[in-house]
Design a binder for these strands. Structure first.
Length: 257
DNA sequence: ATGGTCGGCAACCGA
């Protein structure tokens, strides 16, 4: 029985309720990881997703951040927040679904290189790496998905020369990201699409960024090698970014046998 | 053509 998983930075789940509902209706993905839900837990719009057959897990806060997992199959061993960070940490949520551990993250954006926010991004990433290494083994199925706010290679953003050394395309971020890959995680989209020019994020502040394909690939579905071997395809749904009232990100999805 | 991003949330902050 194949299983499909997707990730989407919604930039407010309430503003994107129709878009996400319609996407699930059409795609029928088993697991959807959401970031930047921007809603406190009592206000999370669970009901429409439950009516559509999904369990909802969420950890949010006022105005900023917030992560959620929507899953057709019952989640087990739910965890909210990353050790060593605030109890209210709304950037990490995980569960075991169909015997596969799934971690959904919203990595700090980092603002600008040389600032406290950038150092916090690096620290958060290192803590996540330690958490993964301490709690999982690379030779068992596991998925780490979400918005990493890092483009890894020059082919993962539209103007690498312009942005080299800046936040989201800086060697210090990339070095930590590569440690996840070195440990045994595989970038599932890259596996199926070695060529560049595929993006998941287009900044609202760049006019007609989608049309001009001025984007970044900063959202990922990472899977341990044994699971990645079973991946049949991975795709980015640019159509959802072209609809009215889009998020600045779009859906990234993968299918496993 | 005489403007030019969103969302949250109520003045700006974060992305």
């Amino acid at each position: 029985m194949p299983i499909t998983i997707a990730t989407f930075n919604a930039n407010s789940i309430r503003a994107r309720l129709d878009l996400v509902s319609q996407w699930l209706d059409r795609e029928q993905t088993d697991i959807l990881c959401l970031q930047e839900t921007k809603v406190q837990d009592p206000d999370f719009p669970s009901r429409p997703f439950e009516k559509a057959g999904y369990h909802t897990l969420f950890r949010g806060q006022k105005s900023y951040n917030g992560v959620a997992i929507l899953t057709k199959h019952a989640p087990e061993k739910i965890r909210k927040g990353l050790y060593g960070h605030d109890e209210e940490d709304a950037r990490f949520i995980s569960a075991v679904i169909q015997d596969i551990p799934v971690i959904n993250v919203y990595v700090p954006q980092g603002f600008a290189v040389g600032t406290d926010k950038f150092e916090y991004k690096l620290r958060w990433l290192r803590d996540l790496l330690a958490f993964v290494k301490n709690n999982y083994t690379a030779d068992c199925p596991m998925i780490l998905a979400g918005d990493f706010n890092i483009a890894l290679e020059p082919i993962d953003l539209f103007d690498p020369e312009k942005y080299r050394g800046q936040v989201t395309f800086h060697p210090d971020e990339q070095a930590i990201f590569r440690e996840f890959l070195d440990w045994g995680l595989v970038d599932v989209f890259r596996k199926h699409h070695p060529e560049g020019g595929h993006y998941t994020f287009w900044d609202y502040r760049i006019p007609n960024a989608l049309k001009r394909n001025m984007g970044w690939r900063i959202d990922y579905i990472l899977a341990t090698a044994c699971l990645a071997e079973k991946s049949r395809k991975a795709w980015i749904d640019t159509r959802a970014r072209a609809l009215p009232k889009p998020s600045d990100h779009t859906f990234l999805a993968a299918e496993f046998d």
